[in-house]
Design a protein around this nucleic acid. Structure first.
Lengths: 336, 336
DNA sequence: GTGAAAGCGCTAACAT
DNA sequence: ATGTTAGCGCTTTCAC
């Protein structure tokens, strides 16, 4: 393994000067730089990042911690990839390395320790659950940290969100405007920030239209297809005429169940999802949904985190717009 | 930042002994270990990985290099996630850290340098193209390396593959057995190993059933939905009665086009895809496909790479089984 | 069972 | 423009 020392020897220079030449410092003569680089190439020199980081006491790394990684394999879309793409896209404009950290079940290392031991500068969280101890540990520290879809507060903290409540209210209102009266909801789970917000939107839509809210029409299906089918069956048995799902994956499960019961969408039951998975365009009928801009979420997360790390002022909450996609799954407006 | 030195001072021990205690070495008394760990905890000690790796000259890391990362955002499934899941699943059983490396356009660092500078032990490649210079650099070195879906040869090299030719032949034969006679193919592109193999399977199925092969019925659509629609139109104009697509994404594009032309699947045209995307189960009709076991691909890649890194003997080629999924998109057998 | 000393490869004062 | 020196935090001989 070639080191600076080897290059120094060949060039008859000090290690220091070689280091400076390779790092393109100003106070090195052009001729030296050229010579050093040439020899470095000849000797197949590869810098030792670990030694460098040890002495610099910084790594210029941003970790993207992807929680509930196992879940994604069931999730039929590239939400995660798109978010990552957004993150990388911003990262390319700055000099930071992105280090994805996929949290699998058995991995029990504290996120904070993981990051500190590697001198990582900041974290972006994707899919963090508020009942995750290791997540809370970071939240309660002052480690620079941006979350996507989870609201956090504190020093060096920011959140990238969408206005779940607003869009959920919009969705349910669209259903009500089309004449549906007994609308149930299939939600995710109580530890997800988005679930709470989306339910709030559902409730306020009902309230605005003076529709009595029946708690028993709100079911949780953990964002899963199969569980959503089960919950859809329960709602069908309650004779709902519409179902608002907190995710498209659950809407797919509901659709499956509705069709199995020989009911028609939207004639018998209206259906609305959330997320904007491409697959909603391939079902029959296509499912109405709130399409999220996942690329932008990632991009914004990286942008804000960079500000935090640089100790610049930053927005503590960034809302990313969604697109509301109405299809035949909720039928037609009277004037349509 | 707490270091071993701080702990040593508090414990009135040498740095050496503290290091040994923390690393659970045998020649440290139990009482010392307990004391050291207690103090370490109190002082919020976090090990410095970089210092450790510098002195040990190894990192126990495996890098997963994900090429054509940008492509994945268009790809409507979690193939990549599932492969990663498989890799992590195996990695959990050994003491290696997985370091995903997403190759984005602007990233021009040599993969080999990236790995060497970090003392990474081995690489798993996903989505590598045979025209990628940086990929070839690694292939031509003796760096431990396993590829998924790309055939490589050489020292410390292995490939995880599926038998594309076999399964393609099977798929096309199934169509022929159901009475389809003029079957076109929509392929990916010539730089993909899988494309060449799948076309070979298509051709040999025709040959076996003594069907004349018409070159003009083979179109390339770069694995893309839209392009596949265009090519499907061309095939429709050629009056084919069946289309075999080298990917489900392209089969979706073809289906879209077929329906737009007021033709019926499978009555007018039979359709067969490849990959096993979940979405094929949601189209109408469901699309017949060859479902790949992506989890297993990742798992096997990690398993073989570990063997290579450990300098154990290993299989140079591992074939992962697929599941053939026949749906109504190719109609019924006479005795069905 | 414990400690002293050396060194991993690099960078950064400080000196010239 | 270049070199000297010290040291980042850790592990590991080697000695006791």
């Amino acid at each position: 393994m070639t080191t600076l020392k080897d290059i120094a020897k060949t060039c008859e220079l000090s290690v220091t000067q070689v280091s400076r030449a390779l790092n393109d410092c100003d106070d090195v003569s052009i001729s030296t730089k050229i010579k050093v680089r040439k020899v470095a190439e000849e000797l197949n020199y590869v810098k030792n990042i670990n030694a460098r980081r040890l002495v610099l006491k910084k790594s210029n790394q941003i970790s993207v911690i992807i929680c509930g990684f196992d879940r994604y394999k069931k999730d039929n879309d590239n939400i995660l990839m798109t978010v990552l793409n957004g993150i990388y896209n911003f990262a390319e404009s700055i000099n930071y390395e992105i280090v994805p950290f996929f949290v699998s079940k058995k991995n029990d290392e504290s996120y904070l320790q993981y990051c500190k031991s590697r001198l990582i500068n900041g974290i972006i969280f994707i899919g963090a659950r508020s009942d995750d101890e290791k997540f809370l540990e970071i939240i309660n520290s002052d480690f620079p940290c941006v979350t996507i879809d989870t609201l956090i507060k504190g020093k060096n903290k920011a959140s990238i969100l969408i206005d779940d409540e607003y869009y959920s209210e919009l969705a349910v209102s669209e259903m009500i405007n089309r004449g549906y009266k007994k609308i149930g909801m299939i939600n995710g789970h109580e530890f997800a920030h988005v679930s709470l917000e989306r339910q709030r939107g559902y409730e306020s839509a009902l309230k605005k239209h003076r529709i009595h809210m029946d708690e028993s029409l709100i079911k949780c299906a953990n964002f899963e297809f199969n569980e959503a089918s089960l919950k859809a069956k329960e709602l069908i048995d309650e004779n709902v005429d519409g179902i608002f799902c907190a995710s498209d994956m659950m809407a797919l499960g509901a659709l499956d169940e509705i069709l199995k019961n020989n009911l028609k969408v939207p004639d018998d039951i209206a259906l609305f999802g959330f997320d904007g998975l491409l697959i909603t365009e391939f079902t029959n009928p296509k499912i109405s949904t709130i399409a999220q801009d996942n690329f932008k979420k990632g991009y914004e997360a990286a942008r804000i985190l960079h500000k935090i790390v640089k100790r610049e002022s930053y927005e503590k909450k960034v809302f990313v717009d969604c697109e509301i996609k109405i299809t035949n799954s909720i039928g037609l407006l009277h004037n349509e």
